[in-house]
Amino acid sequence: MKKTYNNKAWFFVLPVFIMVAFNALVPLMTVVNYSVQETFGDNVFTWSGVQWFSDTLTSDRFHAALLRQLEFSAIVLAIEIPLGLFIALNMPKKGFWVPVCLVLMSLPLLIPWNVVGAIWNIMALPDLGLLGRAINSLGIPYNYTRQPYSAWFTLVLMDVWHWTSLVTLLCYAGLVSIPDAYYQAAKIDGARPWAVFRYIQLPKLRHVMTIAVLLRFMDSFMIYTEPQVMTGGGPGSSTTFLSLDLVKTAIGQFDLGPAAAMSLIYFLIILVISWLFYTLMMRNEEA
C-alpha cells in the first residue's frame, strides 16, 4: 500500500511546538548558553568552555549544599513515606468519616507554599510562637534562628506537616482499589494482619508508592520557598539547600555562568536519581 504524505498535519502540531519552545527549550538553551560563557554586563559574553562546570563540581560550597540537600530529602522521605502509609492504613474505608478525613488530609496541600513558611515561621518563634514557647517551656533550648539543629527540626517538621498528606492520599487511593476478594481470601487462608499487609496491601500499593516516593523526592530535592521564608538558609549556611544556594549565586552575586552550570548539574542529579529509582522499583514487574 502506498503511504500518503500529508504535511499539512504539521500545522496542527505547530502551536504546541511553539508553546514548548517558549516554555522549556528556549529558557533551557539560555541556561546552557550562560553556562559556557563569562559575562561582565552590557551583553558582552566571552567563551569559557567547561570552566564553570569544573568549578562547581570541585567547589566545597556546592558539595556542602548538595550534602545538605540529600540529607534533607532522605530524612523527609524516611518520615513521610512510612507515616503517610500508616495514616492511610488507619483511615476509615467507608462511612461518614471518609469525606471528613479526606478533606482534613487535603487541607495542608491547599495552602500556598510561602504561607506555609510564614505560618511555621511565626509558630516556631521562640518568644511568641506557640511551638517555640512550648518547646522552650519544656526546658529544651530551642531557637531556629540561632541553632542549626532547631532550624533543621523545624524545617523537617514543616515539610512533614505539609506533604505527608500527599503520600496518605495516594496510598489511600491505592488501598481502596484492592478488591474485597483479596481480604476475604486472606481471611479464609488464616492470614494474620501483618501477612495481609506484607503480601496483599504492600504489593498492591507498589505503583502508587513509587509515584509517591518520586514526587516527594523531586519536590523535597527542589525545596525553596518554605526554607527561604522560614530561615533564609540560616543560621549561617546550615539550611542553605541547593536551590537556595543557586538563587544566591545567580541573583545575589550575579554569577550567571556558575549559576547556570550549577542548575544544569542540579537538574541532571534529579533526573538520574529519579530514573535509577524508577528503574529499580519497576525492575521486577514482569519477573
Binding site: A181, Q184, K187, I188, Y199, I200, K204
Partner: peptide
Amino acid sequence: LTPEKRNIAQVFQFPVIYDTM
C-alpha cells in the same frame, strides 16, 4: 464463627493470588 474457624475454602470470581510469592 469466622471463615477461618469454619475451616472452609473459597475460590473467587477473579483469581486471588499473592503476587509477590
